[in-house]
Amino acid sequence: MDKVSETVMAAEVDHRLMQEFANGDPRAFELLYQKYKGGLYRYFIRQIGDKQLAEDLYQETWARVIKAAAGYERRAKFTTWLYRIAHNLLIDHVRALKPVELFSDAAIEGEPINDGQPCMQYAPEQLTTQGQKATILKECIALLPHVQKEAFLLNMEMGFTAVVIAEVAGAGLEAIKSRLRYATQSLKQCVEGKWQEQHYDTK
């Protein structure tokens, strides 16, 4: 079975579960929740420095899903709908909480991320090379501009294509492609740079 068929099947399952939940079956919601809780949680955690605020938004997102279940109609894939709710909540709170302090939205797309910040302290000898690079990547993701970060996270967590990300973020397709491209390049440079830096420092 190819990837497209798997995606279609998954979308059908999600839709059926949502309908069952709308018909009063909470077990269907639990299945949906277990399926998507991790990705959605990381979507908020990685974008917001404040863990409590991230958890509030995460909870609010699911609350809206529960509330909207009675009138749920299949206009889009469930995941698209879910992350659209999350995106809107995030934008609302970012606007309310002075986003400049939380995100590096002001950064120009394509501009290399500032890797002059100190890396997370860890004991290199206790980590494998892959583990070390993963930790560096996590740091570098945090340094991405918000719009690039969101596009990258949606792509990594959910496997969303640029088209779906554009639908979730309410942006143009080309802009999303550009964000993904810049995010990838920036992260590659950041990870390589930090890795070499750490390796050099260790030596």
Binding site: Y33, Y41, Q59, W62, K133, A134, M156
Partner: peptide, 28 residues
Amino acid sequence: LQLLYRSQATEQPSEALDSHILAMAQAS
């Protein structure tokens, strides 16, 4: 990058948060 990301993407909501959200769904 995807492999690196997945290797460290392990954050999960707390049990309490899960219970709270599932309780909301039950109470709805």
